[in-house]
Design a binder for these strands. Sequence first.
DNA 1: TTGAAAGCGATACCAC
DNA 2: GTGGTATCGCTTTCAA
Lengths: 350, 350
Amino acid sequence: MKKVTIRDVAREAGVSVTLVSFVMNAKVGKDGRLDCPVNPDTAQRVLQVAKRLGYRRNNAAASLRSGRSHSIAVIVSDIASPFFSEICRSIETIAYQAGYTVIFASSEEKPAKLSHLVDMMIGFNVEGLIVAPCLGGEAALSKAVGIGVPTILIDRDIPGEDFGRVLVDNVDAGYIAARYLIRQGFGKVEMISYKEGVTSLTDRETGYAKAMEGAGLKDDTMVHRIEYESIAAKKEVIGIFRDALKRGTEAFILPTKKMAMYAFNAMNVLGLNMPKDFSFVCFDESDIYDLNKPVVPHIVQPIAEIAEKSFSLLRRMIEDKVSEEDRTVSLKAKLVLGGRFGAEPMEASF
Amino acid sequence: MKKVTIRDVAREAGVSVTLVSFVMNAKVGKDGRLDCPVNPDTAQRVLQVAKRLGYRRNNAAASLRSGRSHSIAVIVSDIASPFFSEICRSIETIAYQAGYTVIFASSEEKPAKLSHLVDMMIGFNVEGLIVAPCLGGEAALSKAVGIGVPTILIDRDIPGEDFGRVLVDNVDAGYIAARYLIRQGFGKVEMISYKEGVTSLTDRETGYAKAMEGAGLKDDTMVHRIEYESIAAKKEVIGIFRDALKRGTEAFILPTKKMAMYAFNAMNVLGLNMPKDFSFVCFDESDIYDLNKPVVPHIVQPIAEIAEKSFSLLRRMIEDKVSEEDRTVSLKAKLVLGGRFGAEPMEASF
DNA sequence: TTGAAAGCGATACCAC
DNA sequence: GTGGTATCGCTTTCAA
């Protein structure tokens, strides 16, 4: 592993290592000139030698000395989920423009792994953390803020004073899902949720119930709660749909993508049609929402906003102090009616 | 940012920094004892002090000194693509078990960004790279291998002697797609591809043509090539389907997911049905393949295998030398007939 | 504008 | 088993 150091460049260019360091860290000003206390000619020579020799800064050494790394870490609970991978992409794009390098990692919903990753990242001297916490991850993250590493929570909240927070208002998300269906003229709107009490889901349930009550439909409010495990779940959902035909249900809210898939499967199995038999509002993104005829209305999280707000909040927390009350950002989910592949939205068929 | 160093631990435990370093780097043997030349009692004391003080190793310092970092980098061309994000997840899981930390990054198909990321990663002293190259990324990656950083190519090949390679046999993928349809009894099988000559696509075209020729269907071979740009593409595909009805086309191979989405849209727009009007073999994964009735046969890349082979090859390249001929791994894509959400495969309806 | 020299926190080497 | 110390490559005073 051949390595070219700052000394090699200095020797070759006939200057001191200090000069080389200055040049290598200089920003180019708007006039194209290097913003550093170095003779422009010298700077040019250094730059050329560095290029010729193939010099690249050893970040480990730089950050060891300076304590800064110009990088942040994003730890999500599952990098393979489209939601998280798109968040990663968006954060990366924004951070890159701001001159930050982003390191991603995935905790796989395992607290031990999260803890290991946090240690690792801090060991890399990252300047801040954006984390989608997994259950049981409180300790690891508290430790991080405890030693002064600015940390932003996304997707899920956990207790703790000093976290920054960029969270989506799931009560509102459930509310707009239900209200949309109610405004379409449906009264018997039901929701199929999971038994496990994940905050984001219970919030969506709350919003749904609120909308129903507000429309005088309190008695028609009905939340089914099924097992998360897939084989049982699939059958349970089919059962719910079969009964729904008798009950006179008009519409369903499916508060996760997986639940929506079970619902579509049930419709298939029972030979039902949307919107003839039931109308849906689903959550998240799926090809099937977009290609269905009509397009299935679905609620999406504002990924670009989450990315942008969390990075800018993190940056402010890294640079200055941010006042307590500005540390929490609440975003609204959005109802999407049109599809990505050109089909018409649901309303057109109503 | 409070920091606890090895010296603090040493002082507090009344031992030398050397001892602390030994203890902190010791692996636990199978008998639960630390595998290091340190008195077990001393080791225990050091461990406890370290924990009490909240010591965590400064990786920057460690890797500066040792030249090792126990980490590798994975750079994909688009972290938000399900294919890549799943590869990332798989590699991460495997690497984690092997005691490696994985840093992910996304080049967004931009050579300049790839080059920056490679520099960055090398600056972090990563021990190896797994890269899905973007077009024009040759220079950056050649530089990496040039300075001795083991580098594995996935997804796309680019010229270069010293790369490791874990690639999917796309000729075979196109071949099995076509052969499946031919065995179903279809003769007029067509493919819709893109005008841009991406290797993976032209290989799939080649495989398709080979299968057609092998079945004596050379004259029915037909590859449509459309613009990549979406508005035009959507219309072009609709046109192809409209004409196909007249031509008597029986089946289509859609060699990318996006192409499949255009195809489904066209079917929608024209009011056509699968498999009544046309049969499909698509590529990649989509909810719509799985929930369609019948399930749409689709060809998937062996993600777990790609991850496993690329990590193990990289590891061997890091540790020993790997002989030239063992540096290239070719994997086969697989035809999937059943769906993830419980619907029946296509054959059941034939 | 330029350069010499002091560390950052760990590991590696050598001596005890 | 244990400890002293040079050193990794860079940034950062401070002085010239």
